[in-house]
């Protein structure tokens, strides 16, 4: 453990020593690509070997990946699965931009530089065991990670709702139970989640079979509307997805008076808090501040990002 000196204000002295907790918490690994699969509509799932990152990752944390030596900046990708025993990390992405397009060409056996895990992940409130997890598009991965992480916690009721405009890159199975407030048209769930004993339902505006026809936040709204007051008092929301979806999630959080944490994205350079390039304006008790998405986030309290919608909006 390294220490810093804080005594003898304002000069450093060597007497009182406090652990430097941030030191050595992010790992740089030359990760071998173990599997790289393409799915419909330009979706890819890549699995790499990065044992240190896999051991320390938490749901909501991300990896900063050097997609190709010729691409100047790394690209942040949310971690979808982290298997401590095997040291594997898994990511889902769409090849948007030069960096991720280069990553899509990398093959099993090749190595990529992975800097991970980075960021403060989801910290669900233990006083609210009923968790609604809403994921959209490339915001799905951290929701999968959270669900897998929480699946064996006793006393939790997890409801996962996912939205996508393209076919889900996962195996789907018919849902086995009816859920209050969820239309029968939303008849499919994720096979993986069924295995884990976690309820999940899907939404799509693209007419995908077995999916609720509309926004995932409208699907979530139906479920919340059907919840009792007592249930809502035990409910919280976690979410990750495109900005309009997060905004709609914020409206749900305000409307039902629920705590809500969201994972956000921003263009990023260093990924370790050094450059302040990825900041987001947040509002707290002390007014506005610019917070770094990489190390202050990527998970934020939704109320610090989105103001309460005015009545009638």
């Amino acid at each position: 453990m390294r220490y810093l000196d804080t005594d003898g204000y304002p000069w450093p002295s060597r007497t009182r020593r406090i652990p430097l907790t941030i030191r050595g918490t992010i790992f740089l690994e030359e990760a071998e690509i173990l599997e790289h699969r393409a799915y419909p509509a330009e979706q890819y799932i890549v699995t790499v070997s990065a044992p240190e990152a896999a051991r320390h990752a938490t749901p909501g944390s991300f990896a900063h990946i050097r997609c190709d030596p010729g691409i100047p900046l790394r690209r942040p990708l949310s971690i979808m699965r982290a298997e401590r025993a095997s040291g594997r990390l898994q990511f889902l992405y769409k090849p948007v931009g030069a960096g991720l397009a280069a990553l899509a060409t990398r093959e099993p056996g090749e190595r990529i530089s992975v800097l991970a895990p980075i960021g403060r992940g989801f910290e669900p409130d233990p006083a609210r065991p009923r968790i609604l997890a809403v994921g959209g598009g490339v915001g799905i991965p951290p929701i999968v990670f959270l669900a897998e992480d929480l699946r064996e916690r006793a006393g939790l009721e997890l409801m996962v709702m996912m939205g996508s405009e393209v076919p889900f890159p996962f195996d789907l199975v018919p849902a086995t139970r009816a859920i209050d407030g969820v239309p029968e048209t939303a008849s499919q769930s994720l096979a993986l989640f069924e295995q884990w004993g976690i309820e999940s339902r899907l939404a799509s505006g693209a007419g995908l079979a077995g999916c609720f026809d509309g926004f995932v936040t409208d699907l979530a709204n139906g479920w919340l509307r059907a919840s009792t007051k007592q249930e809502l008092a035990r409910t919280q929301i976690v979410s990750c997805g495109p900005e309009p979806m997060l905004r709609a999630t914020a409206e749900l959080a305000y409307a039902y008076d629920l705590p809500c944490q969201v994972a956000v994205e921003e263009y990023m350079a260093c990924g370790v808090g050094g450059c302040a390039g990825c900041t987001l304006e947040v509002h707290g008790a002390n007014g506005a501040a610019m917070k770094r998405v990489c190390v202050d986030g990527p998970v934020f309290d939704v109320r610090s990002i989105y103001a309460k919608p005015s009545i009638g909006s």
Binding site: R2, L20, I22, R23, G24, T25, I26, F27, L28, E52, L115, C270, V272, G273, G274, C275, A276, V295
Partner: peptide, 26 residues
């Protein structure tokens, strides 16, 4: 502008401020 106020990069295991002769703060 690249290394915050001097401690940020120490998050990376293997990085050390001792590798630099000097560090210019933000």
């Amino acid at each position: 502008g690249c290394v915050g106020f001097g401690e940020e990069y120490t998050r990376v295991a293997g990085f050390s401020n001792t590798d630099a002769g000097a560090i210019v703060l933000k």
